[in-house]
């Protein structure tokens, strides 16, 4: 029987992708999980001491810096959720007013093209106590104005939140705008004819219709927060003390700073678990939406 190349060439073409996935993703994740149960330090050791296989995790949850990291994860997550709210308000106003849509969209979105390192450096400059905004406000006559957030452990995270909102709200605006434009125009016309008030229309009709856009935004935001690293390095480098550590920062530090592979792996495994907890709802939502779309098409 002749060889059917049409059957084999796509499979051959897929080999690189399959190998990469198997080695660099599946294999690498398994390796990291395995190593997190060992006593590896600078170099990987493959022996597991079963009497204390969970020692890295035990250490991790007794580590103050890790506790701070997890707290900050929550703080940054809740704080930068403001970017979603702001994004929605901006999108709703742009969509309603239409005038200057292109201009405002261009302005609101440009921070996304700026790397988080540059973002952090710029905001560090704005937060500079002697020469930045604080100085500017005091010169204006607000003697008590304090904008030196990054210097104090209890306000440093707020500085990072502010910079994150600056960087991200345009992105959520773009997603919201796409969602708003997806709403049937007849609904807007119907509401206008019915004389529904502005606020009631948005709260009772638009927001419920956009619940999946909101959910997507929330999930994307959470995933971004788990990965937050660059902005921390650029703004505070974890300081003051370890007050602005985040899990991603902690993991890199355990590897590059403390040269402890097993410890870094354990922290990375927890990061993976957090990601999975966020990721699984996304999968369910996507599957649900796909099914709904298909059902509509039939």
């Amino acid at each position: 029987m002749q060889v059917r190349w049409s059957k084999w060439s796509p499979r051959i073409a897929l080999i690189p992708a399959v190998v990469i996935t198997a080695v660099a993703f599946v294999g690498a994740i398994c390796w990291t999980i395995y190593i997190s149960f060992t006593r590896s330090r600078r170099f990987p050791e493959y022996e597991i001491d079963f009497s204390e296989w969970g020692r890295q995790y035990e250490r991790l949850f007794n580590d103050g810096a890790w506790e701070t990291s997890l707290q900050n994860l929550l703080v940054l997550g809740i704080g930068s959720a403001l970017a979603i709210v702001l994004g929605f308000i901006l999108a709703a106003m742009i969509e309603r007013e239409k005038r200057g849509e292109g201009f405002f969209r261009t302005i609101f979105l440009y921070p996304l093209a700026v790397s988080l390192i540059v973002t952090g450096i710029v905001w560090r400059w704005l937060f500079n106590p002697d020469l930045g905004i604080e100085n500017f406000l005091q010169q204006l006559g607000f003697e008590n104005a304090s904008f030196n957030w990054l210097a104090a452990p209890d306000t440093a995270m707020y500085g990072i939140i502010l910079a994150s909102i600056w960087h991200g709200s345009g992105f959520y605006m773009a997603l919201m705008l796409a969602g708003l434009k997806g709403i049937n125009t007849e609904i807007w016309s119907a509401a206008k004819l019915d004389g529904v008030s502005f606020w009631r229309f948005y709260i009772e009709i638009v927001i419920p219709m956009m619940k999946f856009t909101f959910l997507t935004c929330a999930i994307l935001l959470s995933l971004g927060v788990v990965k937050a690293y660059d902005i921390i390095v650029a703004m505070t480098n974890g300081g003051p003390g370890s007050s602005t550590w985040m899990p991603a920062f902690f993991t890199i530090n355990a590897y590059a700073g403390r040269s402890n592979i097993a410890y870094a792996s354990a922290a990375a495994v927890i990061m993976l678990l957090i990601t999975a907890a966020i990721f699984i709802p996304l999968v369910l939502v996507t599957a649900w939406q796909t099914r709904r779309r298909e059902a509509q098409q039939v």
């Binding site: 994740i29 993976l272 990721f279 996304l282």
Partner: peptide
Amino acid sequence: TFLFILFTAAFVPFQIIMIPLIIM
């Protein structure tokens, strides 16, 4: 199946594969 694995892989935090990638 492969697409689902890719979809999952797209979300994986870099840190979980960083050390093996360095070694490789």
